[in-house]
């Protein structure tokens, strides 16, 4: 087969005068020759940094037990990641920080008194099934931490829903179990003061109680540019609007939007799980749909579902739609003609 490229190839084969001054070889690559300074580990490590305020808050409220859970989850996640990469003969990349994030986020969704063996099991499932079975970083469909948490929820339904009061409000006697603000709302119709929710002075999972600490971390990430503002805004916004509608209809029966935003895992989910790059859509429209539908789902589960908290399942549910959203919400190509009439 005659090919025009052959002529060019002949031209190229003519002798070349090599190199620059002093016979030094020049480096030849394809453009662009200029890249920004971002990198995957840098992003991941910044996210870890952004999680510090919430981690500190949980250690303050729940004591060293919280710290232990963080250490266990991070360690187990890293070990699982290492084992999988080693076994699959892939480059060992446990220092890219992604497994650390999974470990921290998983720990944050657990009750402070959660047993160590459960934390290890959840971490192994999160990284093993939630991430490595899909092919590792970038290929997983579901947020690994949430998948680990969902697995634990199904595996240890009692342990994952047994809460303790924070140290700061614990009565002198051993308070064995406590109810989360959302459970109080759902089963007893009691509302927790918003100020307590805001600071985190309530029972709940490690990382989700202190709205202010999460907000600090989230805004720091936003400032660094690693959070797509559409996602937390869409998620929290739709939660507020949707729960606000019910609140306006019957304020005695439904809690106000502020309660919804600050109670349970809404803040943590909105800032650190909805925004997970791998498992959120890549297109503008897709991101809006993802976040807004997720927020509505969370409120629906909270108000009408069997469970007090809906953030985890709402995010996992929407994760499943991400490939579909990416496919069908492609941005308009610049100058695209509306209808291909020909």
């Amino acid at each position: 087969m005659e090919d025009k490229t052959i002529d060019k190839a002949e031209l190229k084969s003519a002798p070349e005068t090599p190199a620059g001054p002093g016979g030094e070889r020049l480096f030849v690559t394809s453009s662009p020759h200029f890249l920004n300074k971002e990198s995957v580990p840098k992003i991941m490590h910044t996210v870890v940094l952004a999680l510090f305020p919430a981690m500190a808050a949980s250690v303050y409220f729940f004591g060293l037990r919280a710290l232990l859970l963080y250490v266990i989850c991070i360690g187990a996640c890293l070990a699982t990641e290492y084992a999988f990469q080693k076994y699959r003969k892939k480059p060992i990349k446990i220092y890219d920080g992604s497994a650390i994030i999974t470990g921290i986020l998983l720990a944050m969704t657990l009750p402070p008194g959660f047993p160590v063996f459960g934390a290890i099991l959840g971490s192994v499932f999160a990284i093993g099934v939630g991430k490595q079975l899909f092919g590792g970083l970038g290929f997983n469909i579901f947020n690994p931490a949430l998948l680990g948490r969902a697995f634990l929820m199904a595996t240890y339904p009692v342990l994952t829903t047994t809460w303790v009061e924070p140290r700061t409000v614990q009565k002198a006697v051993d308070a064995v179990s406590a109810a989360t603000p959302l459970a109080l709302m759902k089963f007893e119709g009691k509302l927790t003061p918003v100020l307590d929710l805001f600071t985190g002075n309530v029972a709940g999972s490690l990382g989700e109680t202190s709205a202010i600490a999460i907000l600090i971390g989230g805004l720091f990430l936003r400032y660094k540019g690693y959070v797509n503002w559409k996602l937390p805004l869409g998620y929290l916004g739709s939660m507020a609007v949707f729960s606000g509608i019910f609140w306006l209809i019957d304020p005695s029966k439904y809690p106000d939007p502020l309660f919804h935003l600050f109670a349970g895992g809404a803040m943590l989910g909105a800032w650190f799980m909805v925004t997970d790059m791998v498992t959120s859509p890549t297109t503008d429209l897709g991101q809006w749909i993802f976040a807004i539908t997720g927020g509505i789902m969370a409120v629906v589960i909270r108000l009408f579902g069997g469970l007090p908290e809906g953030v985890m399942y709402s995010i996992l549910f929407m994760n499943a739609f991400v490939p579909l959203l990416n496919k069908h919400t492609r941005p308009r190509v610049f100058g695209a003609v509306k209808a291909k009439a020909e």
């Binding site: 047993p115 063996f117 459960g118 099991l121 099934v129 199904a154 595996t155 240890y156 339904p157 342990l159």
Partner: peptide, 15 residues
């Protein structure tokens, strides 16, 4: 040993 409830559920069957 704390039993893994998920294993009794359909989800466990799939796993």
């Amino acid at each position: 040993f704390e039993p893994w409830i998920v294993m009794i559920l359909p989800a466990g069957a799939f796993l």
